[in-house]
Design a protein around this nucleic acid. Sequence first.
DNA 1: CTCGGGATTGACT
DNA 2: GTCAATCCCGAGC
Length: 189
Amino acid sequence: MKDIFSLIDFSAPSHEVAPQLIGAQFFVNGVGGIIVEVEAYDQAEPASHTFSGPSVRNASMFGPPGRAYVYRSYGIHWCLNFVCAPEGHGAGVLIRAIQPTQGWDIMRERRGVAVERLLCSGPGRVGQALDIVHAFNGRSLAQTPFKLLPAIAPVDVVHGPRIGISKAMDLPWRFCLAGSPFLSKPLSK
DNA sequence: CTCGGGATTGACT
DNA sequence: GTCAATCCCGAGC
């Protein structure tokens, strides 16, 4: 199998990397599955954490591409991004939903729910199910505990406006696996 | 310094 | 539909 880092150039703009991640498989310590929903963010648009420039919180987004940006959302959840674009650019792809394929029992225990559809359908849920912790911030996606594998077969990717933001609503930078029942919400246009 | 708003979720009316 | 949980950070005084 081809190495995904030879197939995807993480130094490309986040909105170009994002659709390529749909269908890829992502695991943390062997727990995870197929990426079915992501969103792209870039310093040039006001919905991004990096819009106002570097800070302690978003520093890893300004670091080298191909690494993790882990942030605390609403003071409660841990969410995961893949850093994109050249170093210093401040762009990334938020992992919003995963179709579970490995580690169901572990994910059910961590999440406290039994319904498979609710294990990883949302950025905060992905963080909890895969045990994303702040210590992963800045770590390379090519190294343990991460494992990122290319899609087994070509997939249909659909896109639309991003969720949960109040700025730059016009950018269609949410990318989903067409017809997937594991999305955090149905795609709107 | 205080204040307010989130790239959210789950419990409740 | 409403709302609280709770941390980071920018805006404003």
